[in-house]
Design a protein around this nucleic acid. Sequence first.
DNA 1: CTCGATGCAAATAATTTGCACTGAT
DNA 2: ATCAGTGCAAATTATTTGCATCGAG
Lengths: 126, 126
Amino acid sequence: MNYSRQREQILEYVKSVKTHPTAETVYQKVREDNSNISLGTVYRNLDRLSRDGYLLRIKMANDKDRFDGDVSKHYHAVCTHCNQVFDIFTNYLKDTDDKVSKELNCKVLSHDVIFNIICPDCERGF
Amino acid sequence: MNYSRQREQILEYVKSVKTHPTAETVYQKVREDNSNISLGTVYRNLDRLSRDGYLLRIKMANDKDRFDGDVSKHYHAVCTHCNQVFDIFTNYLKDTDDKVSKELNCKVLSHDVIFNIICPDCERGF
DNA sequence: CTCGATGCAAATAATTTGCACTGAT
DNA sequence: ATCAGTGCAAATTATTTGCATCGAG
């Protein structure tokens, strides 16, 4: 994989925040430093970086994809009101993949968990 | 909500299968009995029925949405090779929502779990 | 009769892709 | 020099929506 300034900037930005930005947000932010970058390049690199394990792609139920610079095993919580995404580090399920593997008699690669929440800010707003 | 033949047929079909069909598949199947039905109507009704709790909408990571006539609490496994969806009834997490609620100090509505698997058929094919 | 539901087609929106050009090695 | 990566714009694709008409209550 050849070096590219665009890819470096994209990876650096996503790794630097805990906000789980969308591709569009990454585009806007990187553009502040590199006004030439195109949205297509952002999409291409986010896709590549997440498939190569440098980032996590979070597929949202009713919203655009989000990206997470923290590739350690953890879950996510999504506010059903404002769509903000939070990290959940506790209670990671260890032996569950094995149990499911036995139940279905097949290979289990991984699992994802999403908690649907009302975040404190939105709770207050109601 | 007014009665409609289309909605009845859609609900009946999804409830009758364990295949977690896509909107397109539902459209094709219902069309065998009712050749007038339109794809828009299928989308409108699947959306309505799932928001009203008669069906489950499963948002897929890299594929179109699927629908599930079984609205009881359970998880799903998806074959990363053929995209087939399986039900997982064991190991439903009970007190996890409470734990997360305490961790984030917020209201937790529900959670979804998806297991990424290689199904037996695809395993054999490799 | 009234308004919710439909069929059809056009619109939407996120993401992907073709292509000519630029830049890394 | 070669070919991976880019910018741009057009294409793709699932889903949604506007509107005239139809059908349930």
